[in-house]
Amino acid sequence: MGTLCGVGAGALWGLVFLAPELARDFTPLQLAIGRFLAYGIIAFFVIMPRWPVLKSRLKKQDWRALFWLSLFGNTLYYILLSKAVQSGGIALTSLVIGFLPVAVTIIGSRDKGAVSLTSLLPSLLLCGAGAVCIGWQALKAPEATHQTSMGLLWAITALLSWTAYAVGNSRSLVRLSTVSVHDWNLLIGLVTGAQAACLVPIALLSGHLDHDLMSWSCFVGVSTAVAIIASFLGNALWNKMSRLLPLTMTGQMILFETLFALIYGFLWEGRWPRPIEVAAFTLIVCSVMTCVSAHRKHHRTFSNAAMQSSRNGV
Protein backbone atom coordinates (compact mmCIF):
# COMPACT_ATOMS: atom_id res chain seq x y z
CA MET A 1 0.00 0.00 0.00
CA GLY A 2 2.85 2.39 0.80
CA THR A 3 4.43 1.76 -2.61
CA LEU A 4 1.11 2.29 -4.39
CA CYS A 5 0.64 5.61 -2.59
CA GLY A 6 4.15 6.59 -3.69
CA VAL A 7 3.32 5.75 -7.33
CA GLY A 8 0.11 7.79 -7.14
CA ALA A 9 1.88 10.79 -5.63
CA GLY A 10 4.56 10.61 -8.32
CA ALA A 11 1.98 10.50 -11.12
CA LEU A 12 0.26 13.62 -9.77
CA TRP A 13 3.45 15.50 -8.86
CA GLY A 14 4.91 14.85 -12.30
CA LEU A 15 2.36 17.28 -13.71
CA VAL A 16 4.05 20.09 -11.72
CA PHE A 17 6.91 20.06 -14.22
CA LEU A 18 4.52 21.02 -17.02
CA ALA A 19 3.17 24.13 -15.27
CA PRO A 20 6.21 26.39 -15.94
CA GLU A 21 5.97 25.51 -19.64
CA LEU A 22 2.20 26.02 -19.80
CA ALA A 23 2.56 29.48 -18.22
CA ARG A 24 6.02 30.43 -19.51
CA ASP A 25 5.10 34.15 -19.68
CA PHE A 26 5.08 34.29 -15.88
CA THR A 27 8.08 34.30 -13.53
CA PRO A 28 8.84 31.40 -11.15
CA LEU A 29 7.88 33.63 -8.21
CA GLN A 30 4.49 34.38 -9.76
CA LEU A 31 3.93 30.70 -10.53
CA ALA A 32 4.69 29.77 -6.91
CA ILE A 33 2.38 32.49 -5.55
CA GLY A 34 -0.48 31.48 -7.84
CA ARG A 35 -0.21 27.79 -7.03
CA PHE A 36 0.13 28.13 -3.28
CA LEU A 37 -2.46 30.86 -2.82
CA ALA A 38 -4.94 28.49 -4.46
CA TYR A 39 -3.66 25.63 -2.27
CA GLY A 40 -3.97 27.75 0.87
CA ILE A 41 -7.55 28.84 0.05
CA ILE A 42 -8.62 25.23 -0.57
CA ALA A 43 -6.95 24.07 2.66
CA PHE A 44 -8.60 26.90 4.62
CA PHE A 45 -12.15 25.96 3.69
CA VAL A 46 -11.59 22.21 4.13
CA ILE A 47 -9.85 22.50 7.50
CA MET A 48 -12.13 25.06 9.17
CA PRO A 49 -14.71 22.56 10.57
CA ARG A 50 -11.90 20.74 12.45
CA TRP A 51 -9.80 23.77 13.33
CA PRO A 52 -10.63 23.96 17.09
CA VAL A 53 -9.66 20.31 17.60
CA LEU A 54 -6.50 20.52 15.48
CA LYS A 55 -5.32 23.71 17.15
CA SER A 56 -5.40 22.08 20.57
CA ARG A 57 -3.24 19.17 19.36
CA LEU A 58 -0.43 21.27 17.92
CA LYS A 59 2.52 22.52 19.95
CA LYS A 60 4.90 25.39 19.22
CA GLN A 61 7.48 23.02 17.74
CA ASP A 62 4.83 21.65 15.37
CA TRP A 63 4.12 25.14 14.00
CA ARG A 64 7.85 25.69 13.50
CA ALA A 65 8.03 22.40 11.61
CA LEU A 66 5.07 23.41 9.46
CA PHE A 67 6.75 26.71 8.56
CA TRP A 68 10.03 25.13 7.47
CA LEU A 69 8.36 22.20 5.70
CA SER A 70 6.13 24.60 3.78
CA LEU A 71 9.13 26.72 2.81
CA PHE A 72 11.50 23.96 1.70
CA GLY A 73 8.91 21.55 0.30
CA ASN A 74 6.61 24.04 -1.41
CA THR A 75 7.46 27.73 -1.70
CA LEU A 76 11.24 27.71 -2.23
CA TYR A 77 11.28 24.34 -3.98
CA TYR A 78 8.70 25.35 -6.59
CA ILE A 79 10.43 28.64 -7.38
CA LEU A 80 13.71 26.79 -7.95
CA LEU A 81 11.98 24.03 -9.91
CA SER A 82 10.25 26.53 -12.20
CA LYS A 83 13.54 28.31 -12.91
CA ALA A 84 15.16 24.95 -13.70
CA VAL A 85 12.38 23.91 -16.10
CA GLN A 86 12.39 27.25 -17.90
CA SER A 87 16.20 27.15 -18.24
CA GLY A 88 17.05 23.50 -18.77
CA GLY A 89 13.78 21.85 -19.77
CA ILE A 90 11.46 19.27 -18.21
CA ALA A 91 13.58 16.17 -18.87
CA LEU A 92 16.79 17.54 -17.35
CA THR A 93 15.02 18.93 -14.28
CA SER A 94 13.04 15.79 -13.56
CA LEU A 95 16.12 13.58 -13.89
CA VAL A 96 18.08 15.74 -11.44
CA ILE A 97 15.26 15.51 -8.90
CA GLY A 98 15.69 11.75 -9.26
CA PHE A 99 18.90 12.20 -7.24
CA LEU A 100 16.76 12.65 -4.10
CA PRO A 101 16.82 8.96 -3.06
CA VAL A 102 20.60 9.02 -2.68
CA ALA A 103 20.54 11.91 -0.20
CA VAL A 104 17.47 10.71 1.73
CA THR A 105 18.64 7.10 1.87
CA ILE A 106 22.02 8.09 3.30
CA ILE A 107 20.34 10.25 5.96
CA GLY A 108 17.69 7.62 6.71
CA SER A 109 20.27 4.84 7.09
CA ARG A 110 21.16 6.34 10.48
CA ASP A 111 17.65 5.71 11.84
CA LYS A 112 17.15 2.86 14.29
CA GLY A 113 16.26 -0.38 12.55
CA ALA A 114 16.92 1.06 9.07
CA VAL A 115 18.33 -0.97 6.20
CA SER A 116 22.12 -0.68 6.14
CA LEU A 117 23.94 1.21 3.40
CA THR A 118 25.68 -2.06 2.47
CA SER A 119 22.34 -3.66 1.60
CA LEU A 120 21.30 -0.55 -0.33
CA LEU A 121 24.59 -0.28 -2.21
CA PRO A 122 23.28 -1.83 -5.49
CA SER A 123 20.36 0.61 -5.50
CA LEU A 124 22.61 3.60 -4.79
CA LEU A 125 25.10 2.57 -7.49
CA LEU A 126 22.34 2.31 -10.07
CA CYS A 127 20.99 5.70 -9.05
CA GLY A 128 24.50 7.16 -9.23
CA ALA A 129 24.97 5.74 -12.73
CA GLY A 130 21.74 7.42 -13.76
CA ALA A 131 23.04 10.68 -12.35
CA VAL A 132 26.17 10.40 -14.50
CA CYS A 133 23.94 10.14 -17.57
CA ILE A 134 22.09 13.28 -16.48
CA GLY A 135 25.27 15.25 -15.92
CA TRP A 136 26.68 14.26 -19.30
CA GLN A 137 23.51 15.35 -21.07
CA ALA A 138 23.53 18.74 -19.31
CA LEU A 139 27.21 19.58 -19.67
CA LYS A 140 28.79 17.53 -22.47
CA ALA A 141 26.03 16.69 -24.95
CA PRO A 142 26.18 18.52 -28.34
CA GLU A 143 22.87 20.29 -27.63
CA ALA A 144 24.05 21.58 -24.21
CA THR A 145 24.14 25.39 -23.80
CA HIS A 146 24.94 27.89 -21.04
CA GLN A 147 21.21 28.05 -20.28
CA THR A 148 21.16 24.26 -19.90
CA SER A 149 24.03 24.50 -17.40
CA MET A 150 22.08 27.12 -15.41
CA GLY A 151 19.06 24.82 -15.49
CA LEU A 152 21.20 22.08 -13.99
CA LEU A 153 22.33 24.43 -11.21
CA TRP A 154 18.76 25.47 -10.37
CA ALA A 155 17.65 21.83 -10.42
CA ILE A 156 20.40 20.81 -7.98
CA THR A 157 19.38 23.63 -5.62
CA ALA A 158 15.74 22.49 -5.86
CA LEU A 159 16.92 18.96 -5.05
CA LEU A 160 18.61 20.15 -1.85
CA SER A 161 15.46 22.00 -0.82
CA TRP A 162 13.24 18.96 -1.38
CA THR A 163 15.67 16.66 0.44
CA ALA A 164 15.29 18.80 3.56
CA TYR A 165 11.51 18.59 3.21
CA ALA A 166 11.38 14.82 2.62
CA VAL A 167 13.45 14.04 5.71
CA GLY A 168 11.72 16.57 7.98
CA ASN A 169 8.20 15.65 6.85
CA SER A 170 8.71 11.93 7.31
CA ARG A 171 10.04 12.39 10.84
CA SER A 172 7.30 14.86 11.76
CA LEU A 173 4.59 12.41 10.70
CA VAL A 174 6.15 9.65 12.79
CA ARG A 175 6.22 11.97 15.82
CA LEU A 176 2.67 13.34 15.40
CA SER A 177 0.42 10.34 16.00
CA THR A 178 -2.54 12.56 17.02
CA VAL A 179 -2.74 14.35 13.65
CA SER A 180 -3.95 12.49 10.54
CA VAL A 181 -1.96 12.65 7.31
CA HIS A 182 -4.90 14.44 5.67
CA ASP A 183 -4.97 17.16 8.34
CA TRP A 184 -1.18 17.52 8.22
CA ASN A 185 -1.41 18.07 4.48
CA LEU A 186 -4.07 20.75 5.00
CA LEU A 187 -1.99 22.46 7.70
CA ILE A 188 0.99 22.62 5.36
CA GLY A 189 -1.32 24.07 2.72
CA LEU A 190 -2.54 26.71 5.15
CA VAL A 191 0.99 27.78 6.11
CA THR A 192 2.17 27.69 2.49
CA GLY A 193 -0.77 29.87 1.48
CA ALA A 194 0.23 32.40 4.14
CA GLN A 195 3.80 32.39 2.82
CA ALA A 196 2.52 32.96 -0.72
CA ALA A 197 0.41 35.90 0.47
CA CYS A 198 3.50 37.47 2.05
CA LEU A 199 5.31 37.21 -1.30
CA VAL A 200 2.61 39.09 -3.24
CA PRO A 201 4.11 42.59 -2.54
CA ILE A 202 7.51 41.37 -3.80
CA ALA A 203 5.91 40.08 -7.00
CA LEU A 204 4.11 43.41 -7.50
CA LEU A 205 7.30 45.42 -7.01
CA SER A 206 9.31 43.19 -9.35
CA GLY A 207 7.00 43.95 -12.28
CA HIS A 208 6.43 41.45 -15.15
CA LEU A 209 2.67 41.95 -14.82
CA ASP A 210 1.94 43.19 -18.34
CA HIS A 211 -0.07 40.24 -19.66
CA ASP A 212 -3.26 40.02 -21.71
CA LEU A 213 -6.51 38.50 -20.46
CA MET A 214 -5.84 35.16 -22.16
CA SER A 215 -2.47 34.81 -20.41
CA TRP A 216 -3.96 35.65 -17.01
CA SER A 217 -6.77 33.13 -17.57
CA CYS A 218 -4.19 30.47 -18.39
CA PHE A 219 -2.20 31.40 -15.28
CA VAL A 220 -5.23 31.12 -12.99
CA GLY A 221 -6.27 27.82 -14.57
CA VAL A 222 -2.80 26.27 -14.31
CA SER A 223 -2.32 27.50 -10.72
CA THR A 224 -5.67 26.09 -9.58
CA ALA A 225 -5.19 22.77 -11.36
CA VAL A 226 -1.71 22.26 -9.91
CA ALA A 227 -2.94 23.24 -6.43
CA ILE A 228 -5.72 20.64 -6.49
CA ILE A 229 -3.96 17.81 -8.34
CA ALA A 230 -0.41 18.09 -7.01
CA SER A 231 -0.56 19.96 -3.71
CA PHE A 232 -3.89 18.70 -2.33
CA LEU A 233 -4.20 15.16 -3.73
CA GLY A 234 -0.52 14.40 -4.38
CA ASN A 235 0.62 15.55 -0.93
CA ALA A 236 -2.15 13.50 0.72
CA LEU A 237 -0.89 10.33 -0.98
CA TRP A 238 2.73 11.19 -0.11
CA ASN A 239 1.91 11.74 3.57
CA LYS A 240 0.01 8.46 3.68
CA MET A 241 3.03 6.73 2.18
CA SER A 242 5.39 8.44 4.67
CA ARG A 243 3.63 6.72 7.55
CA LEU A 244 3.69 3.33 5.87
CA LEU A 245 7.31 3.22 4.68
CA PRO A 246 10.69 3.76 6.42
CA LEU A 247 12.66 6.90 5.58
CA THR A 248 15.27 5.02 3.53
CA MET A 249 12.49 3.78 1.22
CA THR A 250 10.56 7.07 1.25
CA GLY A 251 13.35 8.73 -0.71
CA GLN A 252 13.24 6.02 -3.37
CA MET A 253 9.56 6.67 -4.02
CA ILE A 254 10.25 10.18 -5.35
CA LEU A 255 11.70 8.46 -8.42
CA PHE A 256 8.15 7.83 -9.60
CA GLU A 257 7.75 11.61 -9.89
CA THR A 258 10.82 11.57 -12.12
CA LEU A 259 9.43 8.83 -14.32
CA PHE A 260 6.04 10.45 -14.80
CA ALA A 261 7.55 13.90 -15.31
CA LEU A 262 9.73 12.48 -18.08
CA ILE A 263 6.73 10.91 -19.78
CA TYR A 264 4.75 14.15 -19.58
CA GLY A 265 7.77 16.12 -20.80
CA PHE A 266 8.31 13.94 -23.86
CA LEU A 267 4.62 14.14 -24.71
CA TRP A 268 4.71 17.93 -24.34
CA GLU A 269 7.82 18.28 -26.52
CA GLY A 270 6.44 15.78 -29.03
CA ARG A 271 9.61 13.69 -29.22
CA TRP A 272 11.03 10.34 -28.28
CA PRO A 273 13.59 10.18 -25.45
CA ARG A 274 17.26 10.35 -26.40
CA PRO A 275 19.43 7.26 -25.76
CA ILE A 276 21.10 8.91 -22.75
CA GLU A 277 17.65 9.71 -21.28
CA VAL A 278 16.53 6.11 -21.82
CA ALA A 279 19.65 4.92 -20.00
CA ALA A 280 19.00 7.27 -17.05
CA PHE A 281 15.32 6.28 -16.98
CA THR A 282 16.17 2.56 -16.92
CA LEU A 283 18.83 2.92 -14.24
CA ILE A 284 16.44 4.84 -11.99
CA VAL A 285 13.72 2.18 -12.35
CA CYS A 286 16.23 -0.56 -11.49
CA SER A 287 17.36 1.50 -8.50
CA VAL A 288 13.82 1.61 -7.11
CA MET A 289 13.23 -2.11 -7.65
CA THR A 290 16.48 -3.14 -5.92
CA CYS A 291 15.66 -0.81 -3.02
CA VAL A 292 12.21 -2.37 -2.58
CA SER A 293 13.80 -5.83 -2.70
CA ALA A 294 16.37 -4.87 -0.03
CA HIS A 295 13.62 -3.62 2.29
CA ARG A 296 11.58 -6.81 1.83
CA LYS A 297 14.58 -8.97 2.76
CA HIS A 298 15.33 -6.72 5.75
CA HIS A 299 11.71 -6.95 6.92
CA ARG A 300 11.69 -10.75 6.65
CA THR A 301 15.00 -11.02 8.52
CA PHE A 302 13.80 -8.66 11.25
CA SER A 303 10.49 -10.54 11.62
CA ASN A 304 12.22 -13.93 11.81
CA ALA A 305 14.68 -12.63 14.41
CA ALA A 306 11.86 -11.20 16.51
CA MET A 307 9.93 -14.48 16.29
CA GLN A 308 13.00 -16.50 17.28
CA SER A 309 13.70 -14.14 20.19
CA SER A 310 10.11 -14.54 21.36
CA ARG A 311 10.38 -18.32 21.26
CA ASN A 312 13.65 -18.28 23.19
CA GLY A 313 12.03 -16.08 25.81
CA VAL A 314 9.19 -18.55 26.22
Score class of each variant (00 low, 15 high):
residue 60 K to R: 15
residue 61 Q to P: 07
residue 61 Q to F: 01
residue 62 D to W: 08
residue 62 D to T: 11
residue 63 W to E: 09
residue 67 F to A: 04
residue 67 F to M: 09
residue 71 L to P: 07
residue 71 L to I: 05
residue 73 G to K: 01
residue 73 G to F: 06
residue 73 G to T: 05
residue 78 Y to Q: 07
residue 79 I to E: 04
residue 82 S to I: 05
residue 87 S to M: 07
residue 87 S to L: 12
residue 87 S to V: 02
residue 88 G to A: 06
residue 91 A to F: 09
residue 92 L to V: 05
residue 93 T to L: 15
residue 93 T to S: 02
residue 94 S to N: 15
residue 96 V to Q: 06
residue 96 V to W: 03
residue 97 I to Y: 05
residue 98 G to Q: 08
residue 98 G to D: 02
residue 99 F to W: 02
residue 99 F to I: 01
residue 99 F to S: 14
residue 102 V to H: 05
residue 102 V to I: 13
residue 108 G to F: 06
residue 109 S to G: 08
residue 110 R to L: 15
residue 112 K to V: 00
residue 114 A to S: 14
residue 117 L to A: 07
residue 119 S to N: 12
residue 119 S to Y: 09
residue 121 L to P: 00
residue 122 P to D: 13
residue 123 S to Q: 07
residue 124 L to A: 00
residue 124 L to S: 00
residue 126 L to H: 11
residue 126 L to P: 07
residue 128 G to I: 06
residue 128 G to N: 12
residue 128 G to A: 13
residue 129 A to R: 12
residue 130 G to D: 03
residue 131 A to N: 10
residue 132 V to E: 01
residue 133 C to A: 14
residue 133 C to E: 03
residue 134 I to H: 02
residue 135 G to L: 09
residue 135 G to S: 13
residue 141 A to L: 14
residue 143 E to H: 01
residue 143 E to F: 00
residue 144 A to M: 12
residue 146 H to C: 01
residue 146 H to I: 11
residue 147 Q to C: 04
residue 148 T to V: 15
residue 149 S to C: 04
residue 150 M to W: 14
residue 151 G to Q: 03
residue 151 G to C: 05
residue 151 G to D: 01
residue 151 G to E: 03
residue 152 L to Q: 06
residue 153 L to Q: 11
residue 157 T to K: 06
residue 159 L to Q: 09
residue 160 L to G: 15
residue 161 S to F: 01
residue 161 S to T: 10
residue 162 W to E: 00
residue 166 A to R: 05
residue 168 G to A: 09
residue 168 G to S: 15
residue 168 G to H: 03
residue 169 N to W: 10
residue 172 S to V: 03
residue 172 S to W: 13
residue 173 L to P: 12
residue 174 V to K: 08
residue 174 V to R: 09
residue 175 R to A: 14
residue 179 V to D: 09
residue 179 V to F: 04
residue 182 H to K: 15
residue 182 H to F: 11
residue 182 H to G: 05
residue 183 D to V: 00
residue 183 D to C: 09
residue 184 W to R: 11
residue 187 L to P: 03
residue 188 I to S: 03
residue 191 V to L: 02
residue 191 V to H: 12
residue 191 V to N: 00
residue 192 T to Y: 04
residue 193 G to R: 01
residue 194 A to C: 11
residue 198 C to E: 10
residue 199 L to A: 01
residue 199 L to I: 13
residue 201 P to K: 15
residue 202 I to F: 15
residue 202 I to E: 00
residue 203 A to C: 14
